[in-house]
């Protein structure tokens, strides 16, 4: 770990360049699905404002770790955890955490684009109407918010004339952009992305990657990916997990060239996974 800390500081300094704040601090996190232990004493810091990718073979626990940060794993009902996950200074595994508030701060993009079967406009404003609009709604303000969010995900020009169209009729790439756009009006601090491109074709993947890169600096982005090339192209820092344990975490450029652990090297070179 001592080694890791040194590396992380360095990574922040030349990758993000803003502050060395930690947005997500995972400490000694273990997690069980029923009796199956999926995470073992994971320690992991995600720095503010940069893109961190989580890689590792199927079933290594990277999605589980991601889904713990907004506690969407709670849906399953048979998940037990020990340790702590601090998001913006608060341990979100505490009983008294208000999940709606947490999930407002920590937005999530899923593997398969999952816009609601509502209009494009209603999709973009869905979260806003959950969290912000109490009482009277201001249509002009809502329009501005929707436009800003859609512009931010580079979708505005494509959909501006058909905001009342059903979102499920869009192409997959547009749907995934919309799924990112609908997080923006509530101004989240952290964006979690669970293999956001794995259901998309190469062109769409490229477009989404570009978009994620555009969002860098404005949000803390933690992205799970199966695609090592993607991790390498589109992240500042990279963490490698194996069998529920955090093996290595460092600057992406260094990790892919000079991995510290043999397992990391083997995985990166495609010997398993």
């Amino acid at each position: 770990m001592e080694q890791g800390v040194g590396m992380e500081n360095q990574a922040v300094n030349d990758a993000a360049g803003n502050s060395d704040d930690v947005a997500i601090r995972v400490q000694q996190l273990s997690l069980w699905y029923g009796t199956f232990q999926a995470l073992f004493d994971v320690d992991f810091d995600v720095k503010r404002g940069i893109i961190t990718s989580l890689i590792g073979p199927s079933g290594c626990g990277k999605s589980t770790l991601l889904r713990t940060v907004n506690r969407i794993n709670d849906r399953l009902g048979y998940v037990r955890t020990t340790g702590s996950v601090e998001v913006l200074g608060k341990n979100i595994l505490d009983e008294d955490v208000a999940l709606p508030q947490l999930r407002k701060e920590v937005g999530m993009v899923f593997q398969r684009p999952n816009p609601f079967p509502l209009s494009i406009r209603d999709n973009v404003l869905f979260g806003y109407n959950l969290h912000e609009a109490s009482g009277r709604r201001d249509k002009g303000n809502e329009d501005d918010l929707a436009e800003a969010a859609l512009r931010k995900v580079l979708l505005w020009d494509e959909v501006k004339d058909r905001l009342d169209q059903k979102a499920t009729e869009l192409s997959l790439e547009e749907q995934q952009k919309l799924c990112i756009a609908r997080l923006i009006p509530v101004k989240p601090q952290v964006l979690l992305m669970d293999e956001p491109c794995s259901a998309l074709d190469p062109a769409a993947t490229e477009a989404i990657e570009e978009l994620i890169w555009e969002l860098r600096g404005q949000f803390t982005i933690l992205i799970v990916t199966h695609n090592m090339a993607q991790a390498r192209r589109a992240s500042d820092e990279c963490a490698f997990m194996l069998m529920g344990k955090m093996v290595e975490h460092g600057q992406t450029s260094e990790m892919f060239v000079t991995p510290e652990h043999k397992e990391t090297a083997d995985y990166i070179e495609g010997r398993y996974g």
Binding site: N70, I72, R75, L99, P100, Q101, L102, R103, K104, G107, M108, F110, R112, N114, P115, F116, P117, F126, G127, L130, H131, C179, R182, L183, V186
Partner: peptide, 12 residues
């Protein structure tokens, strides 16, 4: 998927 998406956005 829809329920999960809505919950992940903080819907009760």
């Amino acid at each position: 998927d829809y329920r999960q998406a809505a919950e992940a956005m903080g819907a009760t």
